[in-house]
Design a protein around this nucleic acid. Structure first.
Lengths: 211, 211
DNA sequence: GTCTATAGATTGATAGAC
DNA sequence: GTCTATCAATCTATAGAC
């Protein structure tokens, strides 16, 4: 088996198990068995279980963040060309649209579940390793939102962004739950992906802009 | 040591460890050591580690849910007396106000972190055990919201409630992060509890009511 | 009810043959 | 690069003295 294929198989298996049972709830033996590789290969290719989790996250987050940065730059450029400040709605679309669309792709497996869990994990070594992947992105979006909402305090804008991220996270779970398996009935949406994207963007735009 | 005191000490220690490292990331030895009790006492008093988690959750959720049910009933009664349907805002206050106020109390320890993690866990034995504590409450709130928003489809209302719960969850983390320890800077709010409650209620009311 | 001691299984990581 | 074998540590749960 080619090296990259072996690594990809390990990453796929790890992603699904970490989503299902969490980092501590998953053993390397489960991962290597599902990946069809040897027990020792995780430590050979990744160094440790923790490094493996890091690789699982980076594989998805780095390309996704590149897109989200680019989308924000495009919004800023377009507004600058018109001599205006970007609209709140345009900024939120730049953040939400690529995120939700990426995350519902089947190959993203349990990534959204892992991220959702990490996002509510304030402690632990893993959060420390994801933080540098998230903070710069949020900082860029916040800068633009401060300009777009000059009548609000920075604290208020940051809190509203945080609440919007919560809405995004749960919307993702609502759609993904629909795609995957057993969920509390009330928490799964029967709406198609398109409808959820639209509803979410309207929801957070109203939330960000109000009063 | 009195029995109830022993059990309470175990529950306190378990709550903080489960919040810090998760269910699988916590050992009974860590819990019993912090609680100042014997290793065997968990199995004596609770039967198993999983039952202990169940008890940790019930201790907080059952009284909190009783309050949230009562608050909803009060809103319904008040509206019925005036011959109207309850306002969306009143319903969201009934849900959010007691939740956020309970959860920021110091004795609630890591409960909000545990709940946040479970809420994004669609699988696993623990979710199965929490579900009956959550679903009936959501169902009651949804019934009232359907009436208050008759121009929207039921799917749309349910999705919006879910997104509001996401906003609530992240608002809780924003305040609690402020009260506790290291968090990503952007994700912690410097605003006082009162301001967060107000901002959150405005945010979700706008989100639920729009278009 | 609380304790010590331990069974029995599983873990992450590594050493060394091929 | 992949394998087997294994180490040393850790885990949950329980048995039995007090």
């Amino acid at each position: 088996m080619a090296v990259e294929e072996t690594k990809a198989n390990i990453l796929d298996a790890a992603e699904s198990f970490f989503a299902e049972a969490g980092f501590h709830g998953t053993s390397l033996r489960q991962i290597t068995e599902r990946a069809g590789v040897n027990v020792a290969s995780v430590n050979y290719h990744f160094g440790s279980k923790e490094n493996l989790m890091d690789a699982v996250l980076r594989r998805r987050l780095e390309p996704l963040n590149a897109i989200r940065f680019a989308r924000l730059e495009a919004v800023k450029a377009e507004a600058a060309e018109a001599g205006e400040t970007p609209s709140v709605r345009a900024v939120m679309i730049a953040l939400i649209d690529p995120t939700l669309r990426a995350v519902v792709q089947p190959e993203f497996g349990g990534f959204s579940i892992i991220m959702g869990r990490i996002f509510t994990d304030h402690r632990g070594a893993i959060m420390e390793r994801v933080r540098p992947l998230i903070e710069p992105l949020l900082a860029c979006y916040l800068e633009v939102l401060y300009e777009a909402l000059p009548h609000l305090s920075r604290e208020e804008v940051a809190l509203r962004l945080r609440m919007s991220l919560g809405a995004l996270q749960h919307a993702i779970h609502a759609v993904r739950g629909h795609l995957t398996d057993s969920c509390p009935r009330e928490l799964v949406t029967a709406l198609p992906e398109e409808a959820v994207v639209d509803s979410l963007i309207d929801f957070v735009t109203r939330g960000m802009e109000g009063s």
